[in-house]
């Protein structure tokens, strides 16, 4: 840590980011948000004082960038270990056990929920972005076009935070809990320039667009395999109530044989849950790449 006191809020935030280098990007975003809120509140409590005058005492009351970095890293560790549901340790058990263990893994069901939900969110994000951009670009020959485009970028930043919350809840990937901080520039124009230059703005936009085709694919995979599996599992019951269970080339399946179909259904459900867990992991990594890590 450099020895002299930070001279400006931006200087403080830069040093905090430096001290947190290598930490989870989501923690960095949260820590910067908190520090920025606190430091600016302190500034507005002391009107007429310069940033360096206010920052001197703050380093001892709020904590130096190094101390704050340490606090956030420790806190995160403690909460993660306390809140996390222990995963069953099945890595070195025989494969049948590993296969069956997926039925007891809440992560697989949550991932399935996410895959089904992705169609809804995908449609919503895609229409927001595409209609916003189309109307904005179309109107850009008039005076309202550019503000509308900027509004779309602002909305996308908010949607990224919401999507992050959904991804963390369903896919168990740590995502930011606070919006991405922007240095408080002197003019609105500087702020706009910064948002436009920020690589993350564009990767977020890309994510929102990708979410529709991905959402359709996820939904199709999840809904077909889940409904087929559940249909097969319930086939003895359905057949009792008079539904005819037919397998195309062979025709009707007699009731006595339907338990075999149930067995097939259970196997298919197991495979589906493995697949959803894998797809969930893939999507979580994608969300982190595009919504958190890009344009750091």
């Amino acid at each position: 840590m450099s020895s002299h006191a930070p001279q400006s809020i931006q200087d403080y935030l830069d040093r905090l980011r430096e001290a947190l280098a290598g930490a989870d990007a989501a923690i960095i975003q949260d820590a910067l948000y908190d520090a920025q809120e606190h430091l600016h509140a302190e500034m507005s409590q002391n009107p007429g004082k310069s940033e360096s005058e206010v920052l001197g005492p703050i380093v001892s009351s709020y904590g130096s960038p190094g101390e704050i970095a340490e606090i956030y890293l420790e806190n995160e560790d403690r909460i993660r270990t306390a809140m996390r549901t222990p995963r069953p340790q099945v890595h070195d058990s025989p494969w049948p056990k590993r296969f069956v263990s997926v039925f007891a893994d809440p992560q697989a069901y949550l991932a399935a929920l996410y895959l089904l939900l992705a169609l809804l969110t995908g449609i919503f994000y895609f229409t927001t972005v595409v209609s916003g951009l189309a109307i904005g670009l179309g109107l850009s020959i008039t005076i309202v076009g550019i503000p509308l485009l900027l509004l779309v970028l602002a909305a996308v930043r908010l949607l990224a935070l919401v999507e992050g919350r959904i991804v963390e809840a369903c896919l168990d990937v740590r995502m930011p809990r606070r919006p991405r901080t922007l240095p408080r520039d002197k003019t609105l124009w500087d702020r706009i320039k910064r948002v436009v230059r920020d690589g993350r703005t564009w990767t977020t936009l890309l994510y929102m667009l990708l979410q529709l085709p991905l959402g359709i694919t996820y939904f199709a995979i999840a809904i077909t395999s889940l409904s087929l599996a559940i249909g097969l599992i319930l086939s003895p019951v359905l057949s009792l109530f008079g539904a005819s269970i037919e397998i195309p080339p062979y025709g009707d399946v007699p009731w006595l044989l339907t338990p075999v179909l149930t067995l097939f259904g259970m196997m298919l459900l197991g495979i589906t849950l493995h697949l959803t867990r894998w797809l969930g992991g893939f999507h979580g990594a994608l969300a982190r790449r595009l919504l958190v890590q890009a344009g750091r």
């Binding site: 949260d30 520090a35 709020y62 606090i71 956030y72």
Partner: peptide, 12 residues
């Protein structure tokens, strides 16, 4: 504690 340590606790 340092004031900066309050925020993560509030969030938790």
């Amino acid at each position: 504690v340092k004031q900066g340590a309050l925020y993560p606790v509030l969030r938790g």
